[in-house]
């Protein structure tokens, strides 16, 4: 068998605010991804994201600490009104971002043409699930990295990476889309607001809770997403993690409210040839970011030193307080 020395996995961490960015870097992030404060990024939540000024100083801070900043412009631009998206790309280039993360072919085309020096990463929202798709983006736009959708098992990731003509990045921790990212309109069906168009999923503005005979009813728009009795935790009504009824049965028909945690699989992902691993959660607190990044830094350092990977418990801070290997483990399907 061929043995080769793998480069250490790059740890890509989320930041919703400049202070979260600093916390991530202090805790050992190799790169931080973040977005401008508007609908050009897929975490367009109130109170989150960066002004141009904040982005500039944050990039300065990151670079002085040897970390990279990747700017996500990963929603799909609004027809007839492309300006916010084009200026986000222009400003990312001007401010010295290490890469932009894009999902929209129209925007990739613009960036490749107008900013040939700007490094392009394909967002998970572009759903490039095979090496054929990845190589299409490489050929068309010269992209340097693709973030893989969370639909592949580890052997599939290895095969895709082997045949891909650019780097791959996979999700390692945090919220788990059960649907292929960037190809889901469930949220807009219920609320009119979608990840692709508005950068939000199951938005808080459309969430309501109601007490009904000792039962807490969590609703999204006009639809009940869950009902919990007094002894059950009341979760946020993310549409695909809700409980529903069918003629066959009822329950979490799509997915339980669980989080992804792949620390057990890190050696396998490294052997699969993956370049970087990504932590989800730009909407998360500074404390959360610090704890998760720190745990992954420890794990990656152990991996690099060929020690066994320490798995400290992160369960208490995760969605649903339980974790899964997701599609990385084939029986998940």
């Amino acid at each position: 068998m061929k043995t080769e020395t793998r480069r250490p996995l790059e740890l890509v961490c989320p930041a919703g605010t400049p202070s979260a960015l600093r916390a991530a870097i202090e805790a050992g992030a190799d790169a931080v991804y973040c977005g401008f404060r508007d609908e050009t990024n897929a975490r367009n939540f109130p109170g989150l994201n960066f002004s141009r000024e904040e982005m500039k100083s944050s990039i300065g801070y990151a670079h002085s600490h040897g970390a990279k900043v990747l700017i996500a412009v990963n929603t799909f631009a609004r027809a007839g009104d492309l300006t916010p998206w084009l200026s986000a790309i222009d400003d990312a280039a001007t401010l010295g971002a290490d890469a932009v993360i894009l999902a929209d072919m129209g925007l990739m085309s613009y960036a490749a043409k107008n900013h040939p020096g700007l490094r392009l990463h394909v967002s998970v929202q572009a759903a490039a699930a095979s090496s054929d798709s990845i190589n299409f983006y490489v050929e068309a736009f010269g992209v340097k990295r693709v973030v893989l959708p969370r639909v592949l098992s580890v052997p599939e990731i290895a095969a895709v990476t082997r045949n891909a003509s650019c780097e791959t990045e996979t999700f390692a921790f945090g919220g788990l889309c059960v649907m292929t990212e960037g190809r889901c309109s469930l949220s807009s069906y219920a609320t009119g607001q979608s990840p692709n168009m508005n950068g939000v999923c199951s938005p808080a503005s459309h969430v309501s809770y109601r007490q009904e005979d000792g039962v807490m009813v969590a609703r999204l728009g006009d639809f009940t997403i869950n009902r919990s009795s007094a002894d059950q935790p009341v979760g946020y009504p993310t549409l695909c993690k809700g409980r529903f009824k069918t003629g066959v049965g009822e329950g979490h028909i799509f997915e339980e409210p669980v989080s992804l945690d792949v620390r057990q699989l890190l050696p396998a992902l490294q052997n699969a040839g993956v370049t970087a691993i990504k932590i989800e959660g730009r909407q998360r607190s500074r404390a959360y970011i610090k704890a998760v990044v720190h745990a992954f830094r420890e794990a990656l350092d152990a991996l690099a030193d060929k020690r066994s990977v320490p798995i400290s418990s992160l369960a208490p801070i995760t969605e649903g307080q339980s974790v899964t290997g997701g599609a990385y483990v084939k029986t998940w399907r």
Binding site: V151, L152, V178, M179, T180, R183, C184, S185, L186, Y189, C240, T246, V248, G249, I253, F254, E255, A327, K330, T331, W332, R333
Partner: peptide, 21 residues
């Protein structure tokens, strides 16, 4: 009916206590 999402997981199989395979 409007196609809203596609997944690696088969929900028909899951509802019947099976997997995609």
């Amino acid at each position: 009916r409007i196609p809203l999402a596609i997944s690696a997981r088969c929900y028909h199989a899951r509802l019947h206590g099976r997997t995609k395979d």
